[in-house]
């Protein structure tokens, strides 16, 4: 099956500085792909090139198998949801949603039906006559989504669509987005810097680092096995430890066990266990985060033992099942 979107070594420079470098990306039909990475890593640039608002300085973009590298946006059949929503302020909600259908010359009757369906899908049929200014942020967001979906695009492009919403609404809209994508079966590319959003929504996750792919795969795979330190750090791995046998590993604080003389005397048979002193304890309500220092090395761990205090002698256990080997990066290689 031809992929819906395919990027072949796509690069984009701005005044000599590369924002995206030789990026390869394949998005299959019905798949929800997340482009994830810190601010400035080239996510928006990539999305804008797929939409046709920016031309790549090198490489090819295929849409539905056809070369679309130089195709203007109006001939790409994309549906884009902008970070600012970009609803047309002088048009009613209904006119906004109908705009793409009108541009496609859809006859009146069908246009009304499809506009109605799109509004229904986002649950805002009752606001059809309003102007965008009269809507809340969350409602504007849904209308922007309805407008993009109404044209039945070959791919739905979402640029940080939830970032302007407050925390509670964001989580609610995340579920809405998942439902709508399931119901419509649309192919979608979501740009986000929020790893939770990507983990929850995406079938496939692409992590970008300075315009190149740092790792891609299913969220479960990537999360369980970050390929390098950049990805690990981005996904919230906070411990990077060089083990006595010379391996560099990473482990999440939630997976590090803090053992005290009261909790157990026996040394776990797997993984690595070291003696350490607690130098800081931060209470977080459901657990605490402790800083343990062993032979000059620092390890962060979470614990639900609320009796732990700074200065306490403990043993720190890094279970084998949760320690992930990392390739040595250039900086960490011993100088020869």
């Amino acid at each position: 099956m031809t992929p819906v979107v395919q990027l072949d070594a796509v690069s984009r420079e701005f005044a000599g500085t590369a924002a995206v470098r030789e990026l390869d990306l394949t998005v299959r039909r019905g798949e929800f792909t997340a482009l994830l990475g810190p601010s400035g890593c080239g996510k928006t640039t990539t999305l804008r090139m797929i939409a046709g608002f920016l031309e790549p300085t090198a490489g090819r973009i295929l849409l539905e198998g056809e070369d679309a590298t130089r195709l203007p946006p109006e001939r790409r059949n994309i549906g884009m949801v902008f970070q600012s929503y970009a609803l047309f302020p002088h048009m009613t909600v209904e006119k906004n949603v109908a705009f793409g259908l009108k541009m496609r010359g859809i006859p009146d009757g069908e246009l009304r039906t499809r506009t109605g369906e799109a509004l229904e899908l986002v649950g805002l049929s009752h606001l059809a006559g309003r102007k965008p200014k009269q809507l809340s942020g969350g409602q504007q967001q849904r209308i922007a989504l309805a407008r993009a979906i109404a044209v039945r695009p070959s791919v739905l492009l979402l640029d940080e669509p939830l970032s302007n919403l407050d925390a509670r609404l964001r989580i609610q809209m995340r579920q809405e987005l998942a439902r709508i994508q399931k119901e419509t079966g649309l192919t979608a590319i979501l740009v986000t810097h929020d790893q939770e959003e990507a983990l929850e929504l995406a079938d496939s996750m692409v992590i970008l680092d300075q315009g190149t792919v740092a790792q891609q795969g299913a969220p479960r795979e990537v999360f369980r096995a970050p390929a390098n330190r950049f990805v690990a750090e981005f996904l919230g791995y906070e411990n990077f430890v060089e083990l006595p046998d010379g391996r560099t590993v990473t482990i999440r604080p939630e997976h590090v066990e803090v053992l005290t003389s009261e909790s157990t005397d026996s040394t776990p048979s797997d993984g690595t266990t070291v003696d350490a002193v607690l130098t800081a304890v931060r209470f977080r309500g459901t657990d605490c985060v402790v800083t343990a220092v062993s032979q000059g090395r620092t390890v962060l761990a979470t614990s639900s033992d609320f009796e732990l205090r700074s200065g306490r002698q403990v043993r720190v256990h890094l279970p084998a099942a949760h320690t992930i080997d990392l390739p040595r990066t250039k900086q960490e290689l011993p100088t020869s």
Partner: peptide, 29 residues
Amino acid sequence: SDPALEEAARGLGAGPLRAFFAITLPVMT
């Protein structure tokens, strides 16, 4: 006005002239 408005129109299938007269000009009125 939001610079993305005209892009939104283009993305929805309006050519440059149509986007100008349907969106940019009314927004500027």
